[in-house]
Design a protein around this nucleic acid. Structure first.
Length: 382
DNA sequence: TATCATGTCCAAACCACAAACCTAG
DNA sequence: TACTAGGTTTGTGGTTTGGACATGA
């Protein structure tokens, strides 16, 4: 068949790990077993769609999304990624949480993947639409950054709406609260959300919006830029349309990524501070998650396109990887007033200590600027 | 090669209390 | 419906702690 060794693409010339054996100008995404060939989606379409018999007989699988050099053997539902045996072993032996990821053997891609009747490539790989949480959620998050993509994604997502999920009481707001499942989706979500806390918070805000959180706490990075508004509208539309969100449950933590804004120890100078006074729009506010709603937050909304064509998928995977490389884990201060107050409080071995009368007297005599400017409640913008 | 001691790194826990939130009346 | 009072929950930062890991004897 084709000379595979010659097609290994050097990263020095391109970011692709392996190029298409046929056109040699695009990254491969599919491995055809009978041909022992790595193909890009376009060539796969051309070759296999041209001949129905060939299409039905040629067993193809996705290429490993991690190394991009070997055919996928498993699909990790948590990561929503197809992985070869080597990468699967590497990734899922990394830590106990990763070991808990539910993986299933990759299924061959049946028939043609292209055209209006195309099957959801991921579903045909053995991933039920419902179980596809992590990956597509990321994609949806990723879409936030780009208006055009955002719009495109929204259409994909709308198409993906399971009809039976619409108009269901209890799910009518777009969420399923099943309270069961693994935390992997959550972990991945957090991981992705950390690129820039905004997306994650937006999701939460949107969730709160439909969940009745209403006007809340002063909150969060409220940078009213166009993207965020756009995303907000986007989220809102999804809720209004009754998108079904799959909830899987879970405990926070894992992967070593900080749960929200709480675990990274760093100087207060390093964090982004959000003044309490930014609280102006209820729709932008971030309610403190009560015990009753914490699960809501820990279960990311998931959008599952049923018609995600391989090219889109490929592009999205690439964008996802890029974002993953550049993500930041900055702590976000949600309540500047609390921060200011915490910094002035007496401590004993780092722990907050009770204020003595002397402390109170000193504070009254030498109030800090923050305090002077409006008491503990409101802290001027940083 | 296996075991133990030592050092380093880092996430989680801890604390008090103002502010936000919730609920009942 | 709007308001109030009282109870509950959250978030904040510096230090300590303890587990994981690496290194050397």
């Amino acid at each position: 068949m084709l000379d595979q060794s010659s097609t290994l693409c050097l990263k020095s010339s391109t970011t692709w790990a392996r190029v298409c054996d046929t056109c040699r100008s695009a990254p491969c995404t599919i491995y055809c077993r009978p041909d022992a060939a790595y193909l890009c989606t376009a060539c796969d379409a051309r070759i296999h769609a041209a001949n129905k018999l060939q299409s039905s007989q040629h067993e193809r699988v996705w290429v490993c999304e991690a190394c991009e050099q070997a055919p996928a053997a498993f699909i990790c539902k948590a990561d929503a990624a197809s992985l070869c045996t080597t990468c699967d072993a590497d990734i899922h032996s990394a830590n106990p949480l990763a070991r808990r990821h539910h993986r299933v053997p990759v299924m061959p891609i049946p028939g043609a993947l292209y055209g209006p009747q195309a099957t959801d490539p991921r579903s045909v790989m053995g991933l039920g639409v419902e179980s596809e949480s992590g990956f597509l959620s990321h994609e949806a998050e990723d879409a936030i950054d780009d208006e055009d993509e955002d719009e495109a994604a929204s259409w994909l997502l709308f198409d993906a709406l399971p009809k039976n999920s619409q108009n269901q009481s209890g799910k009518e707001n777009g969420f399923l609260f099943n309270g069961e499942g693994g935390d992997d989706e959550y972990l991945e979500f957090m991981e992705f959300g950390n690129d820039d806390q905004a997306p994650q918070q937006q999701c939460y805000k949107a969730a709160e919006k439909m969940y009745g959180g209403g006007d809340a706490d002063s909150v969060v990075p409220v940078q009213k830029n166009h993207h965020q508004f756009h995303h907000q509208d986007f989220q809102h539309q999804k809720f209004q349309l009754g998108m079904e969100y799959h909830e899987t449950s879970h405990a926070a933590g894992g992967y070593g990524y900080p749960p929200l804004s709480h675990s990274v120890s760093m100087s207060s100078l390093e964090v982004g501070v959000v003044p309490d006074s930014t609280r102006t729009d209820a729709s932008l506010s971030h309610p403190r998650p009560s015990k009753g709603t914490i699960d809501l937050f820990s279960n990311p909304p998931v959008q599952v396109p049923t018609q995600l064509n391989p090219m889109d998928r490929e592009a999205r995977v690439l964008r996802y990887r890029e974002k993953k490389k550049t993500r930041k884990f900055e702590k976000t201060i949600r309540y500047a007033s609390r921060k200011a107050y915490a910094e002035t409080r007496p401590r004993i071995k780092g722990r907050f200590a009770k204020r003595t009368n002397a402390d109170v007297d000193v504070d009254q005599m030498f109030p800090t600027n923050h305090m002077v400017q409006g008491g503990y409640g409101i802290v001027p913008s940083f």
